[in-house]
Design a protein around this nucleic acid. Structure first.
Lengths: 198, 198, 198, 198
DNA sequence: CATGAATGAGGATTCATTCAT
DNA sequence: TATGAATGAATCCTCATTCAT
């Protein structure tokens, strides 16, 4: 089934180009014509691969989220120690944000839409829930083994970690100052290490 | 003589209504007609008080930021102890976010615009810089007095705190789950207390 | 009846200011607010003196046309010789255009409107007819007395003179080059003198 | 492959229709919707061919002016005698005005705009300068050869001719009386012949 | 009389999407 | 499959005019 491969490949290519356009112009201001030009195809052709403008955004960020989830599983791997596992996850998360920088920038627009439109919301909700339960179980694990401080509510700490991550991404998107990401990451890792362990 | 109107009061009233409309529909989707209807005035009247749609957003969030900055100064007051000062600031910040819930929701859209348009960016940049330097000096103070751990880069920790705050706001906007804010806040305060102190 | 004098005086004052505004911005682009500011009165006050925007234009150019007609009669005075009479009229016409320079500039806009709207058209038509019959009778007089060349159709020559005058005004409005008016006037007078006399 | 369209042809078609609409309603009052309906196309389609409303006007009158300039050169052709050359030019000019009657009617609006907006002004200025220098050199030629009266300032006479022409066009637009154009033309030709020759 | 706050009809323009080729 | 010409719904904003004070 070579055709299908081609089709999927072109979908990805168009989505990648779109992300750049979205990043530069903003999702709302970006015109389909801009994408077509950037992708070197006709305007109509986009609609052979995507239902509409929102569909491109959705698809592109699907990839971003899937890569995160897959990468997160890989990052934790067979690590037994909960602290090590958590730190490996955090390390991966920051590397992921750096690698998918453009997607992160567009994520803000996606977020705004997602907060309002039901379908998007449900979808993003599920992702966040996944991330949080993943984190919460690590926290619980650490607390059970006596390595993490008992005072923390696992769900609350998980939500805190997600918040921190989202905030760091957004802030970096806005700032774009070189070295800022690393500064924040180092502070975060140290703080978590010192503050979470029993 | 014509009707006498408190221009500034009416500006504020329109902006307040607008924020609600922006929150519900999103800034981009919200139509000037929606605002006019919600405010119980004619479409044209809006333009007597604001140059354009963006001007309303800007004005509304100006108030939000100014209230934050003023409140932050008040929250720190005469507190000498750096930890107490920091915690008071954090406590205020979360209360501020709760009080200005609608503005927070719209803040995402503002952020997206600000990241792209020069004027907005400069303005928001200044606010962030203010917040960070405020925080960094508290950290330094704590480190000098030996109360805070020496390992932290003050600027990095300040950026982390801002990130965390922004992330918590955004996450809450998205979630909107009752009790979530408090869960995150408590975890944050405990983490900072435990992790930052020497 | 002092009130009426005041009212009429203020009408004139507003109309004069309006002509300047119309000249600078063009009739269509000029806003009632501009006129109010320029006149140092409130927007609503204009409507105490004029029915609407078009009414101001109409009134202002009424004055212009009336002054022309009155001045023309005066310029011809008791002059018996048809050539002298014609030249005196032409001389006056050019001086009138110079004196009412701003009105001339606005006249273009008026003309465009007049060409389209019935009421305006009828009015302007009457003025042109007056001017033409005035001129035609001078030509006929000159031809009867054997001083003007017989070959000219009086109505045709009158229309030519009006055309030339309108054209000179418009061209001058556009050019605005100093000395241009005089150059055209001298050429016109010489041409008419040489070409019209038998 | 999509429909193949001769862009330039369609541009011309839309512009032609627009001129009719402008003539009937006036440029300012004419709505884009009117043009679309008259052209049998969608409103949006106009913008595929023209940047905006002003662009249509500009394009249409570009054609008008270009046709004039080209026709003028043709009309003068290889004619040696300056009087003959001038009369041929005048004859052409009047025929041109008759042929482009609708454009002439719209020309008034263009003129009003051109007198105010810098870009338009520069453009129209250049055209007038061309016409005048063309005419002035004919006058000079005639004077050198002793055929034209020496008393005329060539530039002044050229400006007079242009004024007369513009005035005749405008006056005709306004009058629209049948036979008027010919009456004016005949008077003009006779006057120039008699008055200009030595 | 004078005012300017309020209004909403009106119009230019944009752009996602469709569809004939 | 690819295209881009065509479309019109959608929306911001302007400004002449009204009218309560």
């Amino acid at each position: 089934m070579p055709k299908i491969v081609d089709k999927e490949e072109k979908r990805k290519a168009i989505a990648d180009v779109s992300i750049t356009v979205f990043k530069n112009n903003g999702y709302h201001s970006a015109r389909m014509a801009d994408i077509a030009v950037a992708a070197g195809i006709g305007k109509g052709t986009i609609y052979e691969y995507f239902k509409n403008k929102a569909d491109i955004l959705r698809y592109a960020l699907d990839n971003y989220f899937n890569a995160f989830l897959n990468g997160a599983v890989l990052a934790m791997g067979e690590i037994k120690d909960p602290l090590e596992k958590l730190l490996s996850l955090i390390d991966f998360a920051f590397r992921h944000a750096a690698k998918w920088e453009d997607h992160c920038a567009v994520y803000v627009d996606y977020f705004g839409t997602a907060a309002r439109e039901k379908d998007y919301r449900i979808y993003l909700d599920a992702i966040y829930r996944d991330m949080e339960s993943m984190l919460a179980s690590i926290i619980e694990e650490g607390q059970r083994s006596g390595k993490f401080h008992e005072g923390y509510n696992p769900a609350g700490f998980a939500a805190l970690l997600v918040s921190l991550y989202e905030g760091a991404i957004l802030y970096d998107v806005f700032k774009g100052a070189p070295g800022n990401r690393e500064l924040v990451r180092d502070a975060a890792i140290r703080l978590i290490e010192k503050g979470l362990t029993a």
